[in-house]
Simulated assay, not measured.
Amino acid sequence: MYIDLAATPDFKRSLFNAIVAPRPIGWISTVSASGRVNLAPFSHFNLVSTAPPVVMFACNAPDDRHEKDTIVNVRETGQFVTNLVTWDLREPMNTSSFNAPYGVDEFELAGLEKAASVKVRPPRVAASPASMECELLQIIDIDPVGPGDTFSNVVLGRVVALHMDDRFVDAGGRFDVVRTRPLTRLGGNQYASTGELVELGRPNPPR
């Protein structure tokens, strides 16, 4: 199968989500300039750099407004927090994805306890085993190109503080992914967690 995207404007765009999978989920908490808290999951999320530590998340504009509440809040305050979603947190994460009116507190909607951050204003998800406090580096606005496209935003944030639950940090200081069971996004409404693991050391160059 070959698809010319320019010549096939009505193709199933969900194919991309199934091909680029599994994808980590950025559970992003923000707060508006007036103090309204927002929490939303983004499956277009990843680590960009470790030195300096930088993360990114991206989203398309919703049907009922120009930008998602998360983007509006980040533009206003220049801050956000990423909260690790585990398998056990899949239901409240899904509840927080509800397209609620602006100003609705998704923490309350999903029955989640807030935890205070240190360097930024947005709260953390108390039940999450790892959270990263971030300050905005840049928002890249992507304009629609063809039929079916929507306005998109890519957010880059510098990690300024890290919170980890001591129960998931081993004696060597490594974060225990197996016990944490991070939730990942697949195609459609499919989710998964860690499966079989293998460690592969980087090979030495041939002599």
Rank of each mutant, 00 (worst) to 15 (best):
W27I: 09
I28C: 01
S29F: 05
T30V: 02
T30A: 04
A33F: 13
A33N: 15
S34A: 09
R36E: 15
V37M: 02
V37P: 02
V37W: 02
V37K: 04
L39V: 02
L39G: 00
L39R: 03
L39K: 01
A40G: 09
A40P: 04
P41H: 04
P41L: 07
P41E: 01
S43H: 07
S43W: 03
H44I: 12
H44L: 14
F45Y: 14
F45W: 10
N46S: 08
N46H: 06
L47T: 08
L47H: 08
L47W: 07
L47I: 12
V48Y: 13
S49A: 09
S49Y: 11
T50Y: 07
A51R: 15
P52G: 11
V54M: 07
V55C: 00
V55F: 02
M56K: 07
F57P: 05
A58P: 06
C59V: 00
N60V: 15
P62T: 00
P62W: 00
D63N: 13
D64I: 11
R65D: 09
R65M: 11
H66P: 12
K68R: 15
D69K: 05
D69Y: 09
D69Q: 09
V72R: 14
V72F: 13
V72G: 12
N73A: 03
V74L: 04
V74A: 01
V74S: 01
R75I: 14
E76N: 08
T77F: 08
G78H: 05
G78A: 11
G78R: 06
G78S: 04
Q79N: 02
Q79V: 03
Q79D: 01
Q79K: 04
Q79T: 03
F80G: 05
F80S: 04
T82I: 10
N83L: 10
N83Q: 12
L84Y: 03
V85G: 06
V85A: 08
T86L: 04
W87N: 13
D88H: 13
L89H: 08
L89F: 04
R90L: 09
R90V: 10
E91W: 11
E91Q: 11
P92R: 07
M93G: 07
T95C: 12
T95H: 08
S96K: 02
S97D: 03
S97I: 01
F98P: 05
F98Q: 08
N99K: 12
N99A: 15
A100V: 05
P101C: 09
Y102G: 13
Y102N: 15
G103W: 04
V104G: 00
F107L: 04
F107V: 04
E108M: 05
A110S: 02
A110D: 00
G111A: 05
E113V: 13
A115R: 14
S117A: 15
V118F: 13
V118M: 14
K119T: 04
K119H: 06
R121C: 05
P122K: 00
P123D: 01
V125D: 03
V125C: 03
V125A: 02
V125Q: 03
V125E: 01
A126T: 01
A127C: 04
A127N: 10
S131D: 11
E133A: 10
C134S: 00
L136Q: 06
L136M: 10
L136D: 06
L136Y: 08
L137K: 15
L137I: 15
